[in-house]
Design a protein around this nucleic acid. Sequence first.
DNA 1: CTTCAATATATCAAACTGATATATCTAGTG
DNA 2: CACTAGATATATCAGTTTGATATATTGAAG
Lengths: 213, 213
Amino acid sequence: MAARKKTYFAVLGLLSWKPMSGYDIKKFVEMGISHFWNESYGQLFPTLSRLVDEGLATKEQAQGSGRRKRFLYTITDQGREALEEWLRAPSEPVRTRSELTLKFFLSCRRPPAEAARLLEEHRSQLEERLEEYTESERTLARAVETGALPDEVGHLLQADSEEESALDLRPEALMFYLTLRQGILVLQARLAWCDEAAAALKPNPSNLGAVTQ
Amino acid sequence: MAARKKTYFAVLGLLSWKPMSGYDIKKFVEMGISHFWNESYGQLFPTLSRLVDEGLATKEQAQGSGRRKRFLYTITDQGREALEEWLRAPSEPVRTRSELTLKFFLSCRRPPAEAARLLEEHRSQLEERLEEYTESERTLARAVETGALPDEVGHLLQADSEEESALDLRPEALMFYLTLRQGILVLQARLAWCDEAAAALKPNPSNLGAVTQ
DNA sequence: CTTCAATATATCAAACTGATATATCTAGTG
DNA sequence: CACTAGATATATCAGTTTGATATATTGAAG
């Protein structure tokens, strides 16, 4: 047997916010919460079918833009119960697989330039992401007070019925903001590590003091 | 098609340090580098077979403790070439799936106590790990200067031939130390986030100033 | 002398990834 | 107006990874 059906409950959780299609969910995860979660189509569609089979969600045909087919999935009461149970259950710690850290580690007995190069690659990867996150952070900090989420995720959460009063999305905005802050803090920590590691590997190891603090 | 054979090259990389058995590799990863990497038996044994099939490693029967069967895998020249190529190739960024962060995010419209409880669970999970890491850090900081790695990993790296002069493992110790530092910095960042998030969710949101910095 | 933990290899179902196939509609370009 | 690129939308598949378990031997502790 394998694993704990993370996708299964993740999807259920997202449906508890709003009925969505498979495509919507993918976009939502990608645009909104990719710093701490991810889903692939290959897992998404089978999972949605399974949720329907097991009575935790319902599937209905909806209007896609134009004449495209589009299936909206809605959580059921039974689904909400299952979700709550999962929310209360103990959670797995994060498992990380960092290819760059592994390569760095392995470069131990190789020319010193190699470790340095890997740290540079690592740093530039992190900086690129940090820039994106910092950009989002500004938008979200405003959204926490106004409820105006960026459209990529906002349009999925807004009430679809025409004239209805717009939902107040400030609670959601706060969650987007806070979880993004986590992403930023972790990135900054990783960047700080790059500095530390680079310093420790500098040709002249006057660093030995620094290394042991 | 899927993926980039990370296990394949990870195993090859570890074998480039020292010939090992499947069990050794598992233990090495678990004891030594689990803060940034992990491998499961289910992937390890098939991968080892494949490395042998493709000429990147050789398999030979060796003496297990007592009369147990034990297979030692040794990297070949072709293996070293393939490894170097991989080391130079661009690397995938880390993808994280944090169950606790997801639950926290989803708890948006639920009783506030729930988000608080999840943050507490998160914090205690992180603190537990941080304690272990901090313990290791002390040992490794010493090992950086003496080369005396903790036995769990050290015995795998020491020359097996009886009277041979012991290898100087200080370069390896430095890598263990530095990558562990990464793990510590990231844990600390996550803990700092728990504080930040808890503060932002405190009943009286005099935090709005704090939230927007 | 028995039971427990460590050593050691191996396999499997289930979960997950990354790529790709298919098709429709929208907007912009020449 | 025709063409094309990109967004919308569902779906599948091979390859990768996980977590659990099966099996067997040995060493140490009680």
